[in-house]
């Protein structure tokens, strides 16, 4: 029988509106798992997660999906763009899911904000890594989420492009007044966070 693996233990935290929370730690420390739990992508085997007064534990998969649909945006290390969709269609996805009436013009505006208007009809495999991540940023901000989750957003990019992406992410974050939770193993990014969590072997470090 497989041995039970504890990934996170004794992790308790509050995130306030407008916070920029950085979750730092080495590979395998449980950063991404914590992000998944905070975003309601998964549920902890023990413990509770609240969004405002709503306990995610009380919601089923669809209930948590509904919360994310209206309140959360996501950016991932691997960009996670849909390969069969153009840049515009990728940004359109959350808008179509939410039932936005002027979804296309809104999506175009988002792409303009990340300076990709000229490449809106390009497919992910026709874009560079930086461009793909900008599309992902545009998609994340498209529904104007109240909270944005980013999992190592620069992990797959070179330093220069990564810096540019971080600048863009923070600029948009400030502009849209979004709460930002992001996972990184880059300690230099901690300077721009309002809160920092250090994870080590699934536990919070002091």
């Amino acid at each position: 029988m497989a041995k039970t693996l504890t990934i996170l233990q004794d992790v308790s935290l509050n995130i306030d509106t407008g916070d920029i929370l950085g979750i730092l730690g080495v590979s395998g420390s449980g950063k991404s798992t914590l992000l998944g739990l905070l975003a309601g992508l998964d549920l902890p085997t023990q413990g509770r997660v609240f969004w405002n007064d709503t306990s995610l534990n009380e919601l089923n998969e669809d209930g948590r999906a509904r919360l994310r649909l209206h309140h959360a945006g996501f950016i991932f290390q691997n960009f996670e763009l849909l390969p069969a969709y153009t840049a515009l269609e990728n940004v359109l996805l959350p808008l179509e899911l939410i039932g936005q009436t002027d979804a296309t013009s809104k999506a175009k505006l988002c792409l303009k904000e990340v300076e990709l208007s000229a490449r809106m009809h390009h497919y992910p495999n026709q874009l560079s890594g930086g461009e793909q991540q900008r599309v992902a940023i545009a998609r994340a901000f498209a529904i104007q989420p109240s909270i944005l989750f980013a999992d190592e957003p620069t992990g797959n990019l070179d330093q220069k492009t990564g810096s540019h992406i971080i600048e863009l992410l923070f600029e948009l974050n400030q502009r849209h007044k979004t709460t930002l939770v992001f996972v990184t193993h880059d300690p230099t990014l901690s300077k721009i966070c309002s809160k920092i969590l250090h994870l080590s072997e699934g536990k919070l470090e002091a």
């Binding site: 975003a39 999906a65 996501f74 996670e80 849909l82 996805l93 959350p94 899911l97």
Partner: peptide, 16 residues
Amino acid sequence: FNTVAIYRCFGASAQW
């Protein structure tokens, strides 16, 4: 699988 995970991540319900 990945596409659906993205849909789910962005709030698509099982019914959708």
